[in-house]
Nucleic acid binder design. Structure first.
Lengths: 153, 153
DNA sequence: TGAATATAGGACTATTTTAGTCCACATTCG
DNA sequence: CGAATGTGGACTAAAATAGTCCTATATTCA
């Protein structure tokens, strides 16, 4: 229902936890305990996040995970991309030409632009913003998105 | 994947079609033909939209459907509400207190505010905007949303 | 070198959601 | 009455999601 999956939500909790212990490596178990999430689930999330380049990992006895960049430099859009695949509010908005109804569809372009607008907004929200709820930033202008030329990324 | 269901997408096509024939009643079959969607699917959509008060219906031989209001007065947010239930980007953002992890979750409030911000943006986009791609309008300011007091509606 | 600790990768299953179809009923018109 | 049209709900099939588990690989340290 226009909603992120639970995993993405959990993923932000995991990342926020890593941000809270910045400077040292945290093991999967430690993160699971701090967030009260299941360890296998946290493990899966950290693997996905590592593959996406949002966290870095060290194997072995003193190993663990850490943010790949500062919390300032990780956007909400990146987190969603990493855990949900390509950002697209509708199936049609993932890419032009995908939908065979497109020629009869009067609304595809509009949704694609709204999609792009929301995405740009999420790009401007960082992990630091998510956990601290402290700073100001620019919003998606949907009406404007509908009048401009380029469709969503 | 942070996406609307196909039905919602189809629903906007159906509504756009009704908007295009404003002033007269359109039958389910006629709408299905114009949009190239399956008739049972269109029927289901129109029933849902009627129940939500976005379209009005007349039974009987000369019956059919029409928009309950002008296309200007129907927002994208209402369409989503009608076809997907309560608007919520995360499960937690539907209502405070739903998630038993909430006390350990550093990010719930932030997502709730982002949710509210996106919703308000979608409220400012009308069906007329969706089909005409013609006018200007205000966007969600996510950063601001994170700093303000009230959470999402 | 070998044991212990961690991550890496992927297979797998159960559950939930979504999409789509169908049928029996109610209403209106001629 | 009977044909056209919406109403309501049940139902099925397909797909996505959540969550678990197993085996392999890397690192550290005694």
């Amino acid at each position: 229902m226009l909603r992120m999956s639970k995993l993405t939500d959990y993923g932000t909790m995991v990342l926020a936890q890593l941000a809270a212990t910045e400077g040292s490596l945290a093991t999967c178990s430690a993160v699971a305990e701090a967030t009260r999430l299941g360890q296998p689930t946290v493990s899966k999330l950290l693997k996905l996040l590592a593959r996406a380049g949002l966290v870095v990992s060290e194997r072995g006895v003193q190993g663990g995970y850490a943010l790949a960049r500062s919390a300032d430099a990780i956007s909400a859009a990146e987190i969603i991309d990493a855990l949900e695949g390509p950002f697209a509010i509708t199936e049609c908005s993932a890419a032009a030409g995908t939908c065979d109804l497109e020629s009869h569809c009067r609304v595809a372009t509009a949704w694609q632009r709204i999609n792009g607008s929301i995405r740009r907004s999420l790009e401007s929200v960082s992990l630091a913003d998510l956990q601290m709820q402290a700073e100001p930033l620019p919003p998606p202008d949907l009406k404007r998105a509908l009048t401009k030329s380029a469709a969503a990324t």
